[in-house]
Write a protein that binds this DNA or RNA. Structure first.
Length: 537
RNA sequence: GGGGGGUUAGCUCAGUUGGUUAGAGCAGAGGACUCAUAAUCCUUUUGUCGCGGGUUCAAGUCCCGCACCCCCUACCA
């Protein structure tokens, strides 16, 4: 049996310092949809997500709460994993934690490789440090006030000149190589506007990067045998070295000769938020070049969600928990809304009215009602089974061809993570199908031409089958119900695992057709209209 | 300060290398139909294309200026 092509994708790993909100859910859901689509399309998918658990903040928070850093990280990682599992239906293959044993090995291995390449050296990191902000400021970010003391302009906190021993990565040596990468692989990062920001940044020159810390110890230790002779201090890796390396760990690194690593690396897709584009588009490829490893094929940078145009923030009190949304609208509606409403890569603004609009208009009316009316007629007028179609008329072929075209349109759109485009085109065809149904008026044909009625009902159901196959990735539960209602033989798991690679519900079956005679039950509405909760009084 | 992007119907946005009457979805209005989840179909109103100049036979689409908005300008993640 021929092996199926690999598709390895990742989300960013989450810093577990709070409850995940709808913005996190946006990233997980979009990656999940991508993973499911690829599985349904026959790829041997590996989908990695997880938590980034090291760093000073976790250590300090743990101390405040009287826990060890690992205990705190475990508690918060479990909370995030629970949202993935129980709220969002995320089909990851591994939930990686940067505290996992194999990840320590991977991080120390990439460090060794960068060291061997001559790109790591010991020096002093110095700058204006604000204790209150826990961060350094550049010279021009500080000002000397009338009292003679120096303050950070941005935050107004006092800063002191601080020097700290640190290992550095020779990032400056990679400016040209990175620009060459950007020139030769214009699809390396998207959307173009974000990618251009990265390119301009690199063109402006790169400084070497401090990649270790000695002021706290909650991190992957730089192996003592690698620091012997340099220093007596204990160095832990700067969190980004460790965090980015999770993508390698998830592929089996450092076992570079293993079957797993050979198959999975380089990654096909990193999905990230716009706040960390620099780390993924500049530092990460530079680290990999230094370590002599292949570069990921694509970094897709998604935008942020805003609540009615307002940035979500705790102080404003407009942060939405994923569970609050899925309880109010239903998981599949939330998944559909997030991918249909906003061009992926741009920021998006949501309102209750917008979600309800999509739910009612696109799901309940255009899709749900079309299924309900056509399946109802089949049950009542075709002996409860998919009818045998008669000769196809030009109108039948036209709508069938439009549905047929959705596979290549969707594949192209997904290839560039243009989820909204795939859905937009799919709903355009559903609009055409509704027009076709009204135009053919099978309820009239029932009295005049039963063969023709059966043909129209068959064609409509077949369009629905094709659409259902494609939207399994976005709305796995609802699409499964719809395929059940259409009498499509069970198979796969709506893209949740590689069991969906083949079978009557995989995209390999897209070009097939409904089997006349398949029994159909009296349909139940699959996409109900939104009901506002009644005031309990 | 420097760099980049935006400003098109009530709302959200499309508008290729400048070329006949500027488009879509939603919302609004009218009509049709009754298979269906008060769903669906058809028809339809509104636009100084931010403002002011310029180039051109011809500009939303190029050039200059102005106004407003947004993003980026490295080591908390």
């Amino acid at each position: 049996m021929a092996s199926r092509p690999s598709y390895y994708l990742t989300t960013a790993i989450t810093y577990p310092n709070g409850e995940p909100h709808i913005g996190h859910a946006y990233e997980y859901i979009s990656a999940d949809v991508m993973a499911r689509f690829k599985r349904l399309d026959g790829f041997d998918v590996r989908f990695l997500t997880g938590t980034d658990e090291h760093g000073q903040k976790v250590q300090q928070t743990a101390e405040r709460e009287g826990l060890t850093p690992y205990e705190l990280a475990t508690r918060n990682a479990q909370a995030i994993k629970r949202v993935d599992d129980e709220v969002l239906g995320i089909s990851y293959d591994r939930f990686i934690r940067t505290t996992d044993k194999d990840h320590y090995r991977a991080s120390q291995s990439i460090w060794q490789r960068m060291l061997d390449a001559g790109d790591i050296y010991l020096d002093k990191y110095s700058g204006w440090y604000s204790v209150r902000d826990e961060r350094f400021f550049a010279d021009d970010e500080t000002e000397v006030r009338e009292d003679g003391a120096r303050y950070a302009v941005e935050t107004g906190t006092p800063v002191t000149w601080t020097e700290e021993e640190s290992y550095f990565f020779r990032l400056s040596a990679y400016q040209e190589k990175l620009l060459e990468l950007y020139r030769t692989q214009p699809e390396f990062a998207a959307p173009a506007s974000r990618f251009n920001e990265v390119i301009r940044f690199v063109e402006g020159g790169l400084e070497d990067l401090s990649i270790s810390r000695t002021t706290f110890d909650w991190g992957v230790p730089v192996p003592k045998e690698l620091t012997a002779g340099d220093t007596d201090l204990n160095h832990v890796m700067y969190v980004w070295v460790d965090a980015l390396t999770n993508y390698l760990t998830g592929a089996g690194f450092p076992e570079t000769d293993s079957e797993e690593f050979t198959k999975r690396w380089p990654a096909d897709l990193h999905i990230i938020g716009k706040d960390i584009s620099r780390f993924h588009c500049i530092f990460w490829p530079a680290f990999l070049m230094s370590a002599g490893l292949e570069l990921p094929k694509r970094v897709m940078i998604h935008g942020f969600l805003h609540n009615a145009g307002e940035k979500m923030s705790k102080s404003v009190g407009n942060v939405v928990a994923p569970a609050a949304w899925t309880e109010t609208y239903g998981l599949d509606t939330v998944r559909f809304f997030l991918l249909r409403e906003f061009p992926y890569g741009q920021d998006g603004s949501y309102t209750h009215e917008a979600v309800v609009g999509r739910k009612n208009s696109d799901l309940a009316n255009n899709l749900g009602n079309l299924a309900q009316r056509s399946l109802s007629m089949i049950v009542k007028n075709c002996e409860g089974a998919i009818p045998e179609p008669g000769e196809l008329h030009p109108e039948d072929n036209k709508i069938l061809e439009q549905a047929e075209s959705l596979l290549s349109i969707s594949r192209d759109a997904y290839q560039g993570q243009q989820f909204h485009r795939a859905l937009e085109r799919t709903w355009y065809v559903l609009g055409e199908a509704n027009a076709y149904f009204a135009d053919q008026a099978p309820w009239k044909l029932k009295k005049t031409d039963e063969t023709r009625m059966r043909t129209v009902l068959y064609v409509t159901a077949e369009v629905l089958r094709k659409v259902s196959l494609l939207i399994q990735a976005v709305m796995p539960t609802s699409a499964t119900k719809l395929l059940d209602a259409l009498g499509v033989e069970a198979g796969g798991d709506a893209g949740a695992t590689n069991a969906s690679n083949t079978g009557p519900r995989s995209l390999a079956a897209f070009g097939d057709s409904l089997t006349p005679g398949s029994p159909i039950s009296k349909p139940e509405p699959i996409f109900p209209r939104h009901e506002e909760p009644q005031d309990a009084s």
